[in-house]
């Protein structure tokens, strides 16, 4: 009894408890937002970023789904990391991800069927999203649960931020609305008096027509490309020396 408490005390002295939100932990969240963004720097998770970003609201739901799946799969994998035999680790990780994705899918089906239909197969495809698998392999298998959880949150935030930026451009220019499908729906520019700028009567914007290209997935590719361009021009750390 006495021995063990001494050992514990020694352990505490040699290894001080890490703070919940120290500098290192904060970095886990902020790093993927800019310097190590999963979409614009690592170029992962592009498939869903091109497909679901026609409207802001479904992209928002998608971002939340990925935040939930990534944070908790990181957490659970990290909890199990010492018990997972390395030969079958991929299968175990997939089971964890698939379970969480199923939870998200059924929840969405029950509470917001419209959005579920819009996102369709892409909720299911979170399982194969490279960001999720990549973080599990690269981070959660080697780090403690709390850090892994934060890392999952940070990467999913980075993914979601890009998703929403792309969706804002695509919705405003492609459909003339913002947040369509929610009570907050804003009609920004279009050919009737419901819109803030009514292009049939406005003298200044009478020429405006919705840009159909923004409704197609290629527009998301152009926007992400331009985002990468802008980010690299602005963040000197990302400039390739080669």
């Amino acid at each position: 009894m006495a021995e063990s408490t001494i050992q514990e005390k020694q352990a505490q002295e040699t290894k001080p408890r890490e703070p919940l939100f120290g500098k290192k932990q904060r970095k886990l969240i902020t790093d993927p937002l800019n310097d190590n963004n999963p979409i614009t720097v690592q170029v992962l998770g592009i498939c869903s970023a091109l497909a679901v970003t026609t409207l802001v609201f479904p992209s928002f739901i998608m971002a939340i789904a990925v935040i939930f799946v990534l944070a908790f799969s990181n957490l659970f994998t990290s909890l199990l990391r010492k018990r997972i035999p390395s030969q079958v680790r991929m299968i175990v990780q997939l089971v964890i991800i698939a379970t969480l994705v199923t939870v998200v899918e059924l929840t969405l089906k029950a509470y917001n069927f419209d959005v579920y239909k819009k996102l369709s197969v892409f909720i299911g495809l979170i399982i194969t999203n490279c960001i999720v698998m990549g973080r599990l392999e690269a981070f959660a298998m080697a780090n403690k649960p709390w850090q892994s959880f934060l890392d999952g949150l940070g990467n999913a935030f980075g993914y979601g931020a890009i998703l929403i930026i792309v969706a804002i451009f695509r919705e405003v220019f492609g459909k003339g609305t913002l947040l369509a499908g929610t009570p907050l729906e804003m009609m920004i520019i279009g050919p009737s008096s419901d819109y803030w700028i009514d292009t049939t009567t406005s003298a200044m914007f009478g020429w405006y027509m919705n840009n159909n290209l923004f409704v197609f997935p290629p527009a998301a590719m152009f926007i992400i490309g331009v985002l990468i361009w802008v980010q690299r021009a602005w963040n000197k750390k990302l400039i390739d020396v080669s």
Partner: peptide
């Protein structure tokens, strides 16, 4: 191709 996909009616 930009005009073709962005403003097909024109």
């Amino acid at each position: 191709v930009f005009v073709f996909f962005a403003y097909p009616t024109t």
